[in-house]
């Protein structure tokens, strides 16, 4: 698989895995209205995933016309080490604090990235990103408000937010660490190197954390990142997620659904 296609799959996998996680809340949310809100976000993300997978499939089929790969082949028939999503998005939902913080970290990143990619000379990539920006802005808004509500709500919610930060902060560094397909994207100008987003991301995120009376995070602290979702080295959580998601396609290979 060529590097640019991997760059696209990385975007697709992020959206699919996070959309899948959010959809796990359906029917179990803290109040009906928020059940609907998080399902909406899940739908937005799955929609983005589909666009990226379809584009990736198109590229692959151009390169090997005999294949006829579909979006579903990419989502349902790749193994765990072939998925290129961030370790952050495969983390389990945990409680509401954990879920909305995960969303906040990811969407803040996605907004900055897609803002750049909307100017990509690859028209399909630019189109998908531009189309998605409006909904991503909403994801950022929605999750920021929850970070603030829970950070500055009750003692209990504040404590849970601190917990969530402990769980998720270790996975932030990966957002800005380039791998081979990032370098390729940057070289061909199809995309950018993620480190250019780093300062602005920390600024924006810390602004909200401060308002939420939560501790800010330092971009300086470097912890050893032994996992790299982008390289296919995931946490233990991805395998069971995929086993569940892919079960029917794996059990009945070659079937139409």
């Amino acid at each position: 698989m060529d590097l640019l296609t991997n760059y696209i799959l990385h975007q697709a996998d992020n959206a699919l895995i996070l959309g899948h996680r959010n959809s796990e809340w359906t029917g179990h949310g803290p109040i009906l209205e928020q059940d609907i809100a998080i399902s909406n976000i899940a739908l937005d993300l799955i929609g983005q995933a589909r666009n990226f997978y379809q584009f990736a499939a198109y590229r692959l089929n151009e390169l090997s016309p005999s294949e006829k790969i579909t979006e579903d082949d990419l989502a349902y028939l790749r193994d765990e080490h072939e998925f290129k999503n961030f370790v952050l998005v495969e983390q389990p939902n945990g409680d509401w604090a954990n879920t909305i913080l995960r969303q906040f970290y990811f969407s803040s990143y996605q907004l900055l990235l897609f803002r750049e990619l909307s100017n990509s000379p690859y028209p399909e990539l630019a189109a998908i990103c531009e189309k998605s920006i409006k909904e991503i802005r909403y994801h950022v808004k929605w999750s920021s408000e929850w970070v603030i509500r829970l950070g500055d709500g009750t003692e209990e919610s504040h404590g849970r937010m601190l917990n969530a930060m402990q769980n998720l902060n270790p996975w932030i560094a990966e957002l800005f660490q380039p791998v081979d397909f990032d370098y390729e994207a940057d070289e061909t100008e199809a995309g950018i190197l993620p480190e250019i987003l780093k300062d602005e991301w920390y600024q924006r995120v810390n602004r909200i954390l401060e308002t939420a009376t939560l501790p800010t995070i330092s971009s300086e602290k470097k912890s050893m990142q032994l996992l790299s979702g982008k390289k296919g080295v995931h946490s233990e959580y991805l395998e069971p997620l995929l086993a569940e998601m892919q079960v029917l396609q794996r059990t009945y290979p070659g079937s139409q659904w």
Partner: peptide
């Protein structure tokens, strides 16, 4: 009608629902 903790949430919920 719907339940929301504040007006901002109410607007967003209304949009969703």
């Amino acid at each position: 009608s719907l339940y929301a903790a504040d007006a901002q949430m109410a607007l967003e919920n209304a949009r969703d629902v």
